[in-house]
Design a protein around this nucleic acid. Structure first.
Length: 206
DNA sequence: TGCCAGGCCCTCTTTAGGGCCTT
Protein backbone atom coordinates (compact mmCIF):
# COMPACT_ATOMS: atom_id res chain seq x y z
CA UNK A 1 0.00 0.00 0.00
CA UNK A 2 1.58 3.24 -1.17
CA UNK A 3 1.78 5.94 1.47
CA UNK A 4 0.54 9.26 0.15
CA UNK A 5 3.42 11.32 1.50
CA UNK A 6 6.27 8.94 0.70
CA UNK A 7 9.15 10.04 -1.52
CA UNK A 8 12.54 8.53 -2.40
CA UNK A 9 15.57 10.82 -2.54
CA UNK A 10 18.41 9.27 -4.49
CA UNK A 11 21.95 9.88 -5.68
CA UNK A 12 24.19 8.02 -8.13
CA UNK A 13 27.95 7.84 -8.27
CA UNK A 14 28.99 6.98 -11.81
CA UNK A 15 31.99 6.43 -14.06
CA UNK A 16 31.34 9.78 -15.75
CA UNK A 17 28.74 12.26 -16.87
CA UNK A 18 26.92 10.58 -19.72
CA UNK A 19 25.28 7.16 -20.04
CA UNK A 20 24.93 7.91 -23.76
CA UNK A 21 28.72 7.98 -23.92
CA UNK A 22 28.90 4.64 -22.15
CA UNK A 23 29.18 5.73 -18.53
CA UNK A 24 27.71 3.42 -15.89
CA UNK A 25 26.51 3.67 -12.30
CA UNK A 26 28.93 2.49 -9.61
CA UNK A 27 26.94 3.34 -6.46
CA UNK A 28 23.33 4.13 -5.59
CA UNK A 29 22.22 5.71 -2.33
CA UNK A 30 18.69 6.64 -1.34
CA UNK A 31 16.48 7.52 1.59
CA UNK A 32 12.71 7.20 1.81
CA UNK A 33 11.02 10.13 3.48
CA UNK A 34 7.53 9.49 4.84
CA UNK A 35 5.82 12.53 6.31
CA UNK A 36 9.21 14.23 6.47
CA UNK A 37 10.98 11.45 8.36
CA UNK A 38 13.59 9.03 7.05
CA UNK A 39 11.95 5.60 7.19
CA UNK A 40 14.32 3.56 5.01
CA UNK A 41 17.77 3.79 3.47
CA UNK A 42 19.35 2.01 0.50
CA UNK A 43 23.03 1.91 -0.37
CA UNK A 44 24.90 -0.40 -2.73
CA UNK A 45 28.13 -0.32 -4.65
CA UNK A 46 27.83 -1.98 -8.05
CA UNK A 47 30.37 -3.40 -10.45
CA UNK A 48 30.18 -1.68 -13.86
CA UNK A 49 32.30 -4.38 -15.49
CA UNK A 50 35.26 -2.16 -16.23
CA UNK A 51 37.84 -0.16 -14.29
CA UNK A 52 36.97 3.34 -13.17
CA UNK A 53 39.26 6.27 -13.92
CA UNK A 54 41.72 7.72 -11.44
CA UNK A 55 39.67 10.89 -11.47
CA UNK A 56 36.46 9.10 -10.40
CA UNK A 57 38.35 7.13 -7.73
CA UNK A 58 39.76 10.35 -6.34
CA UNK A 59 36.46 12.22 -6.67
CA UNK A 60 34.32 9.59 -4.94
CA UNK A 61 36.76 7.65 -2.78
CA UNK A 62 35.42 4.50 -4.46
CA UNK A 63 38.23 2.27 -5.72
CA UNK A 64 38.45 -0.48 -8.31
CA UNK A 65 39.25 -2.82 -5.43
CA UNK A 66 35.97 -1.92 -3.73
CA UNK A 67 34.02 -2.48 -6.96
CA UNK A 68 35.73 -5.80 -7.73
CA UNK A 69 33.71 -7.55 -5.02
CA UNK A 70 30.49 -5.59 -5.58
CA UNK A 71 27.40 -7.11 -7.19
CA UNK A 72 26.90 -6.31 -10.89
CA UNK A 73 24.80 -3.29 -11.87
CA UNK A 74 21.90 -5.45 -13.07
CA UNK A 75 21.46 -7.16 -9.71
CA UNK A 76 21.73 -3.96 -7.68
CA UNK A 77 19.41 -2.00 -9.96
CA UNK A 78 16.77 -4.73 -9.78
CA UNK A 79 16.86 -4.44 -5.99
CA UNK A 80 16.66 -0.68 -6.27
CA UNK A 81 13.67 -0.85 -8.63
CA UNK A 82 11.91 -2.89 -5.95
CA UNK A 83 12.93 -0.32 -3.32
CA UNK A 84 11.56 2.73 -5.10
CA UNK A 85 8.31 0.95 -6.04
CA UNK A 86 5.92 3.64 -7.28
CA UNK A 87 7.14 6.50 -5.08
CA UNK A 88 7.97 9.90 -6.50
CA UNK A 89 11.71 10.58 -6.73
CA UNK A 90 13.96 13.52 -5.86
CA UNK A 91 17.59 14.24 -6.71
CA UNK A 92 19.93 17.21 -6.72
CA UNK A 93 20.19 18.15 -10.40
CA UNK A 94 17.64 15.44 -11.13
CA UNK A 95 18.15 15.33 -14.87
CA UNK A 96 21.60 13.83 -14.25
CA UNK A 97 20.38 11.05 -11.94
CA UNK A 98 17.28 10.46 -14.08
CA UNK A 99 19.44 9.79 -17.13
CA UNK A 100 21.41 7.12 -15.24
CA UNK A 101 18.33 5.60 -13.59
CA UNK A 102 16.59 5.38 -16.95
CA UNK A 103 19.67 3.90 -18.64
CA UNK A 104 20.38 1.30 -15.95
CA UNK A 105 16.74 0.21 -15.66
CA UNK A 106 16.40 0.07 -19.45
CA UNK A 107 19.24 -2.45 -19.49
CA UNK A 108 17.29 -4.82 -17.23
CA UNK A 109 13.82 -4.13 -18.60
CA UNK A 110 12.54 -2.46 -15.44
CA UNK A 111 10.56 0.76 -15.13
CA UNK A 112 9.31 3.16 -12.51
CA UNK A 113 6.13 5.19 -12.37
CA UNK A 114 7.01 8.08 -10.07
CA UNK A 115 7.83 11.60 -11.14
CA UNK A 116 11.23 13.24 -10.64
CA UNK A 117 11.58 16.36 -8.53
CA UNK A 118 14.75 18.44 -8.52
CA UNK A 119 16.13 20.03 -5.36
CA UNK A 120 18.53 22.17 -7.42
CA UNK A 121 15.74 23.81 -9.42
CA UNK A 122 13.60 24.42 -6.33
CA UNK A 123 16.57 25.88 -4.45
CA UNK A 124 17.29 28.32 -7.26
CA UNK A 125 13.72 29.63 -6.92
CA UNK A 126 13.55 29.80 -3.13
CA UNK A 127 17.06 30.84 -2.09
CA UNK A 128 18.18 33.32 -4.69
CA UNK A 129 20.60 34.80 -2.16
CA UNK A 130 22.63 31.57 -1.87
CA UNK A 131 26.18 31.92 -3.25
CA UNK A 132 25.48 28.98 -5.57
CA UNK A 133 23.32 25.86 -5.54
CA UNK A 134 25.86 23.07 -5.32
CA UNK A 135 24.76 20.50 -2.73
CA UNK A 136 27.73 21.18 -0.45
CA UNK A 137 27.19 24.92 -0.59
CA UNK A 138 23.51 24.55 0.33
CA UNK A 139 24.39 22.32 3.28
CA UNK A 140 26.71 25.10 4.55
CA UNK A 141 24.24 27.85 3.67
CA UNK A 142 21.52 26.22 5.78
CA UNK A 143 23.92 25.24 8.60
CA UNK A 144 23.00 21.57 8.29
CA UNK A 145 24.85 19.01 10.37
CA UNK A 146 27.43 17.08 8.36
CA UNK A 147 28.62 13.62 9.32
CA UNK A 148 30.00 11.76 6.32
CA UNK A 149 31.70 12.26 2.99
CA UNK A 150 30.32 14.19 0.06
CA UNK A 151 30.39 12.37 -3.27
CA UNK A 152 29.29 9.11 -1.70
CA UNK A 153 25.81 8.17 -2.79
CA UNK A 154 24.03 7.60 0.53
CA UNK A 155 25.54 10.67 2.16
CA UNK A 156 24.64 12.92 -0.76
CA UNK A 157 21.11 11.47 -0.74
CA UNK A 158 20.86 12.15 3.01
CA UNK A 159 22.07 15.72 2.53
CA UNK A 160 19.67 16.25 -0.38
CA UNK A 161 16.87 15.01 1.87
CA UNK A 162 17.86 17.58 4.50
CA UNK A 163 17.92 20.38 1.93
CA UNK A 164 14.50 19.25 0.67
CA UNK A 165 13.16 19.38 4.23
CA UNK A 166 14.58 22.89 4.67
CA UNK A 167 12.76 23.98 1.54
CA UNK A 168 9.48 22.42 2.67
CA UNK A 169 9.85 24.08 6.07
CA UNK A 170 10.69 27.42 4.43
CA UNK A 171 7.55 27.35 2.29
CA UNK A 172 5.45 26.11 5.20
CA UNK A 173 6.68 28.91 7.50
CA UNK A 174 6.85 31.74 4.98
CA UNK A 175 3.50 31.06 3.32
CA UNK A 176 1.71 29.25 6.11
CA UNK A 177 1.05 26.20 3.97
CA UNK A 178 0.73 22.84 5.71
CA UNK A 179 1.31 19.45 4.11
CA UNK A 180 2.98 20.73 0.96
CA UNK A 181 2.23 18.27 -1.86
CA UNK A 182 4.92 17.03 -4.25
CA UNK A 183 2.95 18.62 -7.07
CA UNK A 184 3.42 22.09 -5.55
CA UNK A 185 7.19 21.60 -5.38
CA UNK A 186 7.06 20.63 -9.07
CA UNK A 187 5.23 23.88 -9.81
CA UNK A 188 7.85 25.85 -7.87
CA UNK A 189 10.62 24.21 -9.91
CA UNK A 190 8.94 25.20 -13.17
CA UNK A 191 8.01 28.76 -12.20
CA UNK A 192 10.29 31.70 -13.00
CA UNK A 193 12.12 33.24 -10.05
CA UNK A 194 10.13 36.44 -10.28
CA UNK A 195 6.80 34.62 -10.06
CA UNK A 196 7.49 32.09 -7.29
CA UNK A 197 6.26 34.39 -4.51
CA UNK A 198 3.03 35.00 -6.41
CA UNK A 199 2.57 31.26 -6.98
CA UNK A 200 3.06 30.36 -3.33
CA UNK A 201 1.00 33.33 -2.19
CA UNK A 202 -2.00 31.75 -3.89
CA UNK A 203 -1.71 28.80 -1.51
CA UNK A 204 -1.11 30.95 1.59
CA UNK A 205 -3.52 30.37 4.44
CA UNK A 206 -4.41 33.63 6.18
C1' DT B 1 40.28 11.76 -38.18
C1' DG B 2 38.31 14.35 -34.76
C1' DC B 3 35.25 14.86 -31.49
C1' DC B 4 33.15 13.61 -27.21
C1' DA B 5 26.76 15.50 -21.90
C1' DG B 6 22.89 18.00 -21.66
C1' DG B 7 19.02 20.53 -19.70
C1' DC B 8 18.16 24.76 -17.28
C1' DC B 9 18.46 29.61 -17.13
C1' DC B 10 20.17 34.33 -17.59
C1' DT B 11 20.99 38.10 -20.65
C1' DC B 12 24.65 42.42 -23.42
C1' DT B 13 18.25 37.22 -25.89
C1' DT B 14 14.86 34.86 -29.16
C1' DT B 15 18.68 35.00 -36.24
C1' DA B 16 22.85 33.08 -29.37
C1' DG B 17 26.19 32.33 -26.12
C1' DG B 18 27.79 30.84 -21.95
C1' DG B 19 27.58 29.63 -16.86
C1' DC B 20 25.58 26.36 -13.68
C1' DC B 21 25.07 21.66 -11.93
C1' DT B 22 25.66 16.53 -11.80
C1' DT B 23 30.23 12.26 -12.07
Amino acid sequence: MKKANSVVILDFETTGLSPVQGDRAIEIGAVRLVDGKVEQQFQRLMNPGRPISAFIAQYTGITNQMLATAQPCAQVMAEFADFIADDNLIAHNAQFDKRFLDAELERIGRHYSGQFGCSLLVSRRLFQQAPNHKLGTLVDFHNLAVEGDFHRALFDAQMTAKVWQVMLNHISYRYNIKDIPFSLMQKVAKTSKSKVATLLGQFEVN
